[in-house]
Simulated scan of single mutants.
Amino acid sequence: MYCIGNHYRVFCTLMRGGTSKGAILRTIDLPTRSEQRDRLILRLFGSPDQNQIDGLGGGTSLTSKVALVGPSHFSEADISYTFGQVSLDKEVIDYAPTCGNMATAVGLYAVEEGYVEMTEPVTYVRIFNTNIKRIIVAEIPVSGGQVQYEGDFSIAGVPGSSARIMLDFPHSEGAFTGHLLPTGQPTDRIELSYGRSYEVSIIDAANVVVFIKAEDVGLTGCELKEDIDRVNGSIGIIEEIRVAAGRKIGLIDKEQEVSPSSHALPKIVFVASPQDYVTANGHSISRDDCDILARYISMGSLHKAFAVSGAVALAAASKIEGTIPNQALSANASKTSLSIGHPSGLLYVEANIKRAGSGYQVLRSAIGRTARRLMDGYAYIPISVLKRNEVVAQQ
Rank of each mutant, 00 (worst) to 15 (best):
S75G: 03
Q85I: 01
V111T: 02
E91L: 01
Y109E: 04
Y95S: 04
G58R: 10
G57I: 04
G59Q: 12
I93H: 03
A67T: 10
V111D: 06
V66E: 05
V66D: 12
A105E: 02
V111P: 10
Y81G: 02
L88C: 10
V106A: 03
G58K: 08
V111G: 00
A110V: 08
G70N: 14
I79G: 02
V66I: 11
T119P: 00
G100C: 06
V86T: 07
S87A: 15
M102E: 04
G58S: 12
G114C: 05
L88P: 13
N101S: 14
V69D: 11
S72F: 03
A110W: 07
H73F: 08
L68H: 15
T98L: 00
V92F: 12
Y109D: 04
Y81F: 09
T98W: 01
T82A: 06
Y95N: 07
E117W: 01
G59L: 04
P97C: 02
D89P: 06
I79L: 05
G107C: 06
D89K: 08
P71F: 15
G100Q: 10
A67Y: 04
V92M: 10
A67L: 02
S75D: 07
E91V: 00
L88Y: 11
G58D: 11
L88T: 04
M118G: 00
G57R: 06
Q85M: 07
L62E: 14
E76D: 08
T63C: 13
G107D: 12
E112V: 07
Y109T: 05
S61A: 15
G55T: 11
Y115D: 05
M118W: 06
L68I: 15
G58P: 11
I53T: 11
M118Y: 00
G70D: 15
I93A: 03
S72Y: 03
C99W: 05
T104D: 09
S75H: 08
L62M: 14
Y115R: 08
G59Y: 12
L62P: 11
G107H: 05
G107W: 09
L68D: 10
T63W: 04
P71Y: 13
I53H: 11
Y109A: 03
A77V: 08
C99F: 04
L56P: 13
D54F: 14
L56Y: 14
T63K: 14
V116D: 07
Y81A: 07
K90G: 08
K90T: 13
S87L: 11
G57T: 10
L62V: 13
G100S: 05
G55L: 09
Y81R: 00
V111E: 07
A77G: 12
S64I: 09
T104M: 15
T60D: 15
D89Y: 01
A103G: 05
V116F: 07
D78W: 00
S72P: 01
T63E: 14
Y95A: 09
A110F: 06
L108N: 05
G55R: 01
I53S: 15
A77F: 07
S72N: 02
T98D: 03
V86G: 14
D78S: 03
S61L: 06
A110C: 06
K65I: 04
E113A: 01
H73W: 11
V66A: 13
H73D: 09
Y115G: 10
P71A: 13
V69K: 12
D94A: 01
T63D: 13
A103W: 04
T119G: 04
M118H: 06
L108K: 06
S61T: 15
D89W: 00
V116T: 09
